[in-house]
Design a protein around this nucleic acid. Structure first.
Length: 619
RNA sequence: GCCCCGGUAGCUCAGCAGGUAGAGCGGCGGCCUCGUAAGCCGCAGGUCGCGGGUUCAAAUCCCGCCCGGGGCUCCA
């Protein structure tokens, strides 16, 4: 059955004369229906009544979305060359009318078997005109079946909530009362329903704090990182890298572009729906990597590995990975076209080794998140697996859930479509109630073969390892996005937003009361710098009030106002952001406090001039 | 891709029943040497995104395009 579906301002038809052996009795006059869904219907040879339900349901769904309740059925033989005999067509259209009526739709039908004058006014929106094709039997070859549709079939998902106590509850039955964010994640994943708000909160913050901004001179989704943002990003990069190396990761660097027609890459590329940036040279085409996998796998396939080496880890932090997301998908730092992704692959012997490795990596990921300033209350875990994997490794899955310690959203597939049998991720739920994945890990049972990565086992036989793909933090830009969104939540609750001290571009701001205190402040600054503390000095000719106001708006954790009293007493007046109070302390105490926050974290100086009078402002 | 919104000084934005530009912040200069969230005065900054049209006259109205953001969607 072919249906031209039109959302019309109005439709008018007037029966002129009978045209077919099968026709309805009808009064010859002009009929008009306003604001309706018009279906021009061609019933075809192989159609049967079984289609009626589906067709009517589709129409009603559409009508609900468009908020209309009038349906006009119009027999229209001109959409097909394989028409059904008139009586059959008539009966099927009649059935459609009955079916729609019984669903409380106001149905009109143009008379069957007549030649009619037809006037239609189609609405001007993009969904107003659609051709629908319904068929009871399998589609013929030339009507290429959408691959995405097939994929969706295969990807039929079953959704559950797994609890740390070992429960597996279908999502419909789970009580989300004390798990709001998990509910948002579930809704986001399943229904893809989204709250409509304005600009994401973090976008305004990233600009206000001079962290990053859009760069209209580049492709959208490629950001400009200002000095403070570069510092924050760099510290996060160093931190994640140091944690991964501590875990065992062996850091490498691989090219950012790869041959489109390389045999190992080609298949993987086609399998991946994300669009790529393509680079053309005189004789070849390259794609920009969209993950760290390519270079590492090519490297691994050239390595000589024995079972004695396993598990073995390769690590790279890509600056950048590229995905040419559709323009409409981009959003601030949440989704970019160029992003920085730490990715550590573990090559393991078998499923047992994979499982024990994955447990370590889950722990690593939690540590990393907590290190950057997010707690496990800030994220929700989702875990996805095939039915087969679940049945064979139930206990392992619950161990993962348990070590996360909160209920987890689970998705189960009947068949393995992707290259992995299990994958989990931590999702941050932001101010718009959208979910963004941060940390993730996967058990990949396919790529070793694809890339010909092998190890020699105890028995002397070459085998394919299993590969785990883990990003312990997720994209670095996304970490910053999450920190800013989290700060926004704090603001909403009336608190003072801030970044973790170790990530704050300026940790201590010195404000001399008058010019005569400048010299002492310079000395204090030098001492703080010796202790690897990021400090700057507001030597501008402005009032103290104004300097404090500006320091506060930069979210500086420690603001020191220095004047005669401090000089005399040998104590500093420190405005501590975390407590919101002014605390008096010796310089040594301040140093100790900041160092406490910095300990175990990388340090890098802020490259901007230390004297604010020398510091230009960035857009 | 589609829809909506936007593009005016370095920034944030006002002006848009057409008469050819304004504020605050910032910058610069001056006064003030200051005690915990914006001291005062003055000055200099603009092809009003681009191209066309209507008009005596366009930032303002019309058409086309470019760029950005948000939402929706992946659907000729």
């Amino acid at each position: 059955m072919k249906i031209l579906q039109l959302h019309v301002d109005y439709v008018e038809y007037e029966p002129i004369q009978v045209e077919s052996s099968v026709y309805e009795e009808v009064e010859k006059k002009t009929y008009r229906v306003d604001d309706a869904l018009l279906l021009l219907v061609s019933v075809e040879k192989d159609d049967d009544e079984g289609l009626v339900g589906e067709v009517v349901k589709d129409s009603i769904d559409f009508m609900n979305r468009m908020k209309i309740n009038k349906l006009v059925l119009y027999p229209y033989a001109h959409l097909s060359t394989e028409l059904a005999p008139p009586l059959k067509a008539f009966n099927i259209i009649k059935k459609m009318k009955e079916e729609a009526s019984s669903n409380n739709v106001e149905v009109y039908s143009a008379p069957f078997g007549w030649n009619k004058r037809l006037v239609i006014a189609v609405k001007g929106h993009p969904l107003a005109e659609q051709l629908k094709n319904y068929s009871g039997r399998p589609q013929s070859r030339e009507e290429t079946v959408s691959k995405a549709l097939l994929m969706e079939e295969k990807l039929k998902s079953y959704w559950f909530i797994l609890t740390p106590e070992g429960g597996m509850i279908p999502v419909e039955e789970f009580d989300f009362t004390s798990h709001r964010n998990l509910e948002y994640l579930t809704r986001y994943e399943i229904a893809k329903s989204r709250a409509v708000l304005e600009q994401p909160p973090h976008v305004q913050l990233m600009r206000k704090l001079k962290i990053a901004d859009y760069e209209s001179g580049s492709d959208p989704g490629n950001m400009r990182w200002l000095p403070k943002g570069r510092l924050i990003k760099s510290l996060l990069e160093q931190y994640v890298t140091s944690k991964v190396i501590e875990y065992g990761g062996v850091e490498v660097e691989t090219p950012i572009m790869y041959d489109m027609h390389h045999p190992s890459l080609e298949k993987y590329l086609h399998r991946f729906p994300a669009r790529q940036y393509i680079i053309r040279t005189e004789d070849k085409e390259y794609f920009l990597r969209f993950a760290a996998c390519f270079g590492q796998f090519l490297m691994a396939s050239d390595m000589v590995l024995s079972y004695r080496h396993l598990p073995f880890w390769l690590y790279e932090l890509t600056r950048y990975s590229f995905r040419r997301e559709k323009s409409g998908e981009l959003a601030g730092l949440r989704r970019l076209r160029a992003f920085t992704m730490p990715d550590v692959h573990a090559f393991v012997k078998d499923i047992e080794q994979a499982k024990s490795e994955m447990k370590k990596r889950l722990k690593l990921s939690l540590e990393v998140l907590e290190g950057v300033g997010l707690t496990r209350d800030d994220v929700e875990m989702a875990i996805r697996f095939t039915r087969e994997f679940y049945e064979e490794n139930r206990e392992f899955i619950y161990e993962l859930v348990k070590s996360f310690g909160k209920p987890v959203l689970a998705e189960m597939w009947d068949e393995r479509f992707f290259y992995f049998v299990l994958k989990w991720e931590f999702n941050f739920i932001d101010g718009q109630r959208k979910a963004a994945a941060l940390s993730t890990d996967q058990i990949d049972v396919e790529n070793a073969r694809q890339y010909n990565i092998t190890y020699v086992d105890e028995d002397g036989v070459e085998k394919y390892p299993i590969i785990l793909h883990c990003s312990p933090s997720g994209a670095i830009e996304r970490v910053i996005y999450a920190l800013l969104e989290k700060a926004y939540f704090t603001m909403e609750k009336g608190g003072k937003p801030m970044l973790p001290v170790w990530l704050s571009p300026t940790q201590v701001r010195l404000i001399p009361i008058a010019e005569r205190h400048l010299h002492d402040c310079m000395n204090i600054m030098a001492k703080l710098e010796e202790e690897q503390i990021r400090v700057d000095l507001d030597d501008r000719e402005e009032t103290v009030d104004k300097k404090i106001m500006e320091a506060e708006s930069e979210w500086i954790p420690y603001i020191v106002v220095f004047g005669d009293k401090e000089k005399e007493k040998g104590e500093l007046a420190v405005r501590v952001r975390e407590t919101g109070r002014i605390e008096y302390m010796k310089l040594e105490k301040l140093i100790e406090e900041v160092r406490k926050h910095n300990s175990g974290k990388p340090f890098k100086p802020l490259s901007l001039p230390k004297l604010l009078s020398k510091r230009p402002s960035f857009k």
